[in-house]
Nucleic acid binder design. Structure first.
Lengths: 308, 308
DNA sequence: TCTGTTGCATGAATATGCCTCATGTTGATC
DNA sequence: GATCAACATGAGGCATATTCATGCAACAGA
């Protein structure tokens, strides 16, 4: 009799809202406009005759009623996902192989929790990381030495299909007492006299170099290190500056170990894609892995943005 | 990325389908057409690339995939209902009073499981049955000696609002060796020489009398008993015949204690409504009680039909 | 104080997709 | 073979979620 109004789309909205803390951000997360979500929330609140959020605050807070619905959303979301996985397994079988090739050092930060969750959901799928870093991870797909490659560019290639994961900002980090430490935005010229501390990878894989410094004719001194934490230490010790994903350095910024700045007026955006053989794109566990990556990453890492 | 398609409406459909065992019946239960459900199911099966049911059988059977979705539907349904109850309590408070007046003897068969479920969901609401059987239960509402009355007619009255519960067929039962025991349908004339065994209630409350026998000018002998089981015994002992709800006698028919027949070519339909003071109609626990009654009754009793 | 910005709300227009209607198909029963 | 019941299917209407175009409020910076 009493129509329930509450639909899955509302629950998804609530989850996005809880994760992002703002209507506009949540809207991006569920691929709708801010207006659409505003209407949704208004409808919900009118239906229940109760406020579900306090809007004036940033991040917005849930009222007890909102919290209750959020709990429901988590319960229902998890069960829906589990059921759909089970159905997929009924159709395609339990087993499979998923060997992942990675070209980016920092990727392990988000890959680990995702792989962890995935292993629980698909115990019979053999999950591997193709060891070492490869200049051409997509090549490994075609030679069938890997089934999935993480790349920062979606270069069209026959038999390869790309799926967006997420986007994020690169920031430059510097010692706290660096002369430019107060500057909110660094331009290319600010790097002229600096030593750039980087992972030991080809120049082509360094966005800062390709997209910002080279176009400005700047070629700073370099120094390499394998480990993120080591790079941070070098920066803090005034051995140079580094460009890293915001989500990789945010904990160190919070603790005040180093300072950071945006790169260029609009920031330096980086993107991540998953590349796979087109034949494999329909595999249930493959899609589920990508969904898991997105979900876990957005839940774990700060400052991510969605990538259409 | 992969749109889920699966919506709450699908889950409700699956539940109705499991309970009724047929698409057409399920459609009535969720107030849609058979066509709508057929479309829904087709969409689901296409989406998952698997059959969810075996249609050729009556009642229709679920495949493993269908079973899995059905399980999901039960889980999700229960949680949605619980959440909405919690929200209602947040808005209206925990407590209240719900005194039920009953005019129909057999009602306890379905009232008991419903009250049981309700007590679990609303522990702080005082639940009572107004003892004794009343000729005018609706009057008890207006004098505030009851908050809800079960009636078989929705007679318009100021300040009273009616809500449909369900409809069902009355059948006539007779001894197995009764001369007319093989007859599928009894007409009014078949009652002429019979003794009618009935509850001790006013004639106005006996549909068989008011709607079938009186119009035909037939007034059979009577005999009364308080208990359904006693009535059945009397009938089996060839002391007369009785008109009872199909769902009340079905277990005895199955065991072969008595035989039954339809009353009139189209059967004798009875309806049940809940009457309440219009002010109370918006009360959350009141609506929830009615929902619970419908849900429990359809799940428990055979041969019910929905009542718009 | 003024102004630009950011984030949310709102009303009207649009578009998506669900449901109904009409009809076809299938299977069972006489 | 005819009839009936239950389900399937395609087309079209219609409800409603979403978008678009604004408005409003809070806040920061000049």
């Amino acid at each position: 009799m009493q129509q329930s109004l509450l639909e899955l789309r509302h629950l998804k909205t609530l989850l996005a809202l809880a994760e992002t803390g703002s209507v506009s951000q949540a809207a991006k997360r569920v691929f709708l406009t801010q207006s659409a979500l505003s209407h949704q929330l208004k409808a919900l609140e009118e239906h229940y005759g109760l406020p579900l959020f306090e809007r004036k605050t940033q991040p917005l807070r849930f009222t007890p009623a909102g919290e209750r619905l959020l709990t429901l959303a988590r319960e229902v979301g998890a069960r829906m996902a589990a059921a759909e996985r089970d159905i997929t397994r009924l159709r395609e079988g339990e087993a499979g192989e998923l060997r992942i090739a990675v070209e980016c050092h920092t990727c392990f930060d988000w890959l680990m929790p995702a792989m962890d969750a995935f292993r629980r959901h698909w115990p019979a799928v053999e999950l591997d990381i193709v060891s070492g870093f490869h200049a051409d991870p997509v090549g490994l797909l075609l030679t069938r030495r890997a089934d999935l490659a993480i790349t920062s560019e979606a270069e069209p290639l026959d038999g390869i299909s790309y799926q967006p994961l997420f986007a994020y900002d690169m920031v430059v980090i510097m010692a706290n007492d660096h002369p430019l430490a107060g500057k909110a935005v660094w331009q290319a010229e600010d790097f002229v006299t600096e030593t750039l501390i980087q992972y030991p990878v080809p120049d082509a894989m360094l966005d800062l170099l390709c997209k910002v410094l080279k176009p400005a004719g700047i070629n700073p001194a370099r120094r390499t290190s394998e480990l993120t934490i080591a790079i941070i230490q070098l920066v803090a010790s005034r051995r140079g500056v580094a460009a890293l994903p915001y989500w990789a350095v945010q904990p160190y910024l919070d603790k005040g170990y180093v300072a950071s700045a945006r790169i260029g007026a609009d920031g330096l955006q980086s993107e991540l894609y998953a590349a796979l053989r087109s034949d494999d794109a329909a595999l249930g566990y493959m899609q589920d892995f990508l969904d898991t990556v997105r979900e876990q990453s957005f839940a774990t890492l700060p400052g991510l943005s969605v990538l259409a």
